[in-house]
């Protein structure tokens, strides 16, 4: 089921984003991994496993924000969504199935090519664009997501400002990122990369932001944080939403 691939079976994560903010060596790193994206056992295995967890948070935030019915099949019907740092479309496709008209942006053209091919196969109509968020003239969206991206970005304030600019008044933003704690250093950077759960070179711990720092940056960018959850791991439950923010966290925000 996976795309045939020649890249090393290192494991990986992700995306790259918009902004003259992305480091060139990172864009190349992820581009190489793009074809492996859709293999659930491949280099993005961690992201695949993360997907139901973060979608659980998004679903709840969406229902809460727009007062939707938790059982409805298409809570995003009639809404537009933008995923920044969309990779090969792991998040865009579920958002499209939930009814949104989805645009995915990624700095690596290879990711965008992989995403487009996959959406065609899945018969989903999603608009994918390569390039830098700040340089694309995209208009505004009801929902803007930017997951596991900000930690790869040098100037976080610039990225957050361009995210805020893409939101309609009354819109909703969702971000997730690793926390900068001894735990995340041990597990996400040294541990996971050492055992090959995440490809080497994916993360630079010093680039991680803490929830306090991120909330401050959000406010400076004109966004008001709404809800926040940790993404924890336990051998029994696997990855799950929890109140422990020490590894990774996901939050919702709206234009202030």
């Amino acid at each position: 089921m996976s795309d045939a691939t020649t890249s090393p079976r290192s494991n990986s994560t992700p995306p790259s984003t918009g902004g003259a903010t992305i480091r060139p060596e990172e864009a190349e790193h992820f581009g190489r991994l793009a074809r492996e994206w859709w293999d659930p056992q491949g280099s993005s295995a961690m992201l695949h496993r993360l997907n139901p967890v973060r979608l659980g948070f998004i679903r709840e935030a969406v229902d809460e924000h727009w007062g939707g019915d938790a059982e409805s099949a298409k809570p995003l019907a009639g809404k537009t969504a933008l995923d920044v740092g969309c990779g090969a479309g792991l998040l865009c496709e579920p958002l499209a199935r939930l009814g949104a008209a989805v645009t995915g942006v990624d700095a690596a053209p290879e990711n965008v090519a992989a995403a487009t091919a996959h959406a065609d196969g899945a018969r989903l109509d999603i608009r994918y664009l390569p390039g830098e968020l700040a340089e694309l003239d995209l208009g505004r969206f009801d929902l803007v997501t930017c997951l596991e991206v900000i930690e790869h970005v040098a100037d976080k304030a610039v990225l957050l400002r361009s995210l805020a600019e893409r939101l309609v008044p009354g819109g909703l933003a969702i971000l997730s990122t690793p926390n900068r704690t001894p735990q995340s250093k041990l597990l996400l950077v040294e541990g996971a990369e050492a055992v090959g759960m995440i490809p080497k070179g994916t993360h630079h711990w010093s680039d991680f932001v803490t929830p306090e720092e991120l909330c401050e940056l959000l406010r400076e960018a004109g966004l008001e944080p709404l809800a926040m959850k940790g993404i924890g791991f336990s051998p029994m439950k696997g990855l799950h939403l929890s109140d422990d923010l020490s590894l990774n966290y996901i939050l919702s925000a709206k234009p202030a």
Partner: peptide, 17 residues
């Protein structure tokens, strides 16, 4: 549960669960 999250029936994470 998967459909509520926009995941299709053949999704590997759902089958794993």
């Amino acid at each position: 549960d998967g459909a509520r999250l926009g995941l299709e029936p053949g999704d590997a994470q759902l089958l794993a669960r």
